[in-house]
Simulated assay, not measured.
Amino acid sequence: MSPTAQDAHDRPGVYSQDGTEYRRDTRYITTRITADGRDGYPVEPGRYRLVVARACPWANRAIIVRRLLGLEPVLSMGVCGPTHDERSWTFDLDPGGVDPVLGIPRIRDAYLARFPDYPRGITVPAIVDVPTGQVVTNDFAQLTLDLSTEWTAHHRAGAPDLYPEHLRDEIDEVADVVYRDVNNGVYRCGFAGDQESYDAAFHRLFDRLDRLSERLASRRYLVGDTITEADVRLFTTLVRFDAVYHGHFKCNRSTLAAMPVLWAYARDLFQTPGFGDTVDFVHIKRHYYEVHRDLNPRGIVPLGPDLSGWWAPHAREQLGGRPFGDGTPPGPVAPGEEVPAEHTAPRPA
């Protein structure tokens, strides 16, 4: 079985030849925005626009990193709606369905402005060059690393070092297994083409979650004693786990809330400024349950789970660690970028 146009867009991947195992297409636009502009795109305040969808875990990473580093004044953000058609994500949250900065109704237009015959999935996050209206990159893994390392001249005072040089090898190693077995592992379960492929993906996912639980039982963060890129990458899957992956993707050995270490770790991050305040559970659930009609033909969006537990005490501070190292928490969410209160976990009275 080959993926439909909507399949290829929504989950930029392909199936193996026998149609049973989901494999992600990782051929992204690898152009980079750098301090020296060596790819033709120098770091410049106000020149670029980060296009995201709050529903998407890969885009959620970029939203978190941009906020933690305080790049809002120099890198604007366009937010697509939670669903899309067969062509691409759309700016249906904006007046008239048009992005107010780029002047386009869908992110596909920015891709085609640079590559008229672009053959692959139209994905978020993407960074667009505002003067030309052309996409620069959709390489989500490199994108956040570049925000940390190439945009340093524009970081806020007190910005954390999410990719410290002396820990990069370990961060890369941890991030790689998190990507293969967890970030992409939930998709392998959800889109498995037969029982054998699903079983293998299921065991691989929960084996890795068990190992991560062991790692985090005695340390507050994945690498070192501060929040790093590795934590951002794991968080965006964990925060979606009970809301969509447990049921929709059949990742149902246990809920996140039934895995004590990971649940406390995820709550610790959620309650940290820059993490939970970027999460829109309404968009997350609408996207997965409404768009994946092959998995959920009637498009019914479940009312659960109860989200109030996200604000329960976690006691992770007893393990030590300093969330922002020598830095400070980010300030309030930028005006106009707030997640509606009714879309996130309710705070206790």
Rank of each mutant, 00 (worst) to 15 (best):
M1K: 13
S2N: 12
P3M: 12
H9T: 09
D10F: 11
P12M: 10
G13R: 03
Q17K: 07
G40T: 01
V43T: 12
V43P: 10
E44P: 03
R47V: 09
P57G: 02
N60F: 00
I64W: 02
E72M: 06
P73V: 12
M77A: 11
C80T: 14
E86M: 03
W89Q: 05
P95R: 09
D99N: 04
V101C: 07
D117M: 03
V124R: 04
I127T: 05
D129M: 07
V130C: 14
Q134S: 12
V135Y: 09
D146C: 07
T152G: 00
H154I: 08
R156Y: 06
A157V: 12
D161E: 13
D169R: 05
I171Y: 01
D172E: 11
A175R: 03
N183C: 06
N184S: 00
R188P: 02
G193A: 12
E196P: 00
R204N: 15
F206T: 05
L212G: 03
E214P: 00
L216H: 06
R219I: 04
L222T: 06
V232T: 10
R233M: 03
R233F: 06
F241D: 08
A243M: 07
A243L: 08
H246K: 02
S254Y: 04
T255L: 13
V261F: 10
A266Q: 07
R267Y: 14
L269T: 14
K285G: 02
Y288L: 05
R298N: 09
I300H: 08
L303A: 12
W311V: 07
P313K: 08
H314G: 05
R316Y: 15
E317K: 05
P323R: 14
F324Y: 14
T328Y: 00
P335Y: 14
E338H: 13
E342N: 08
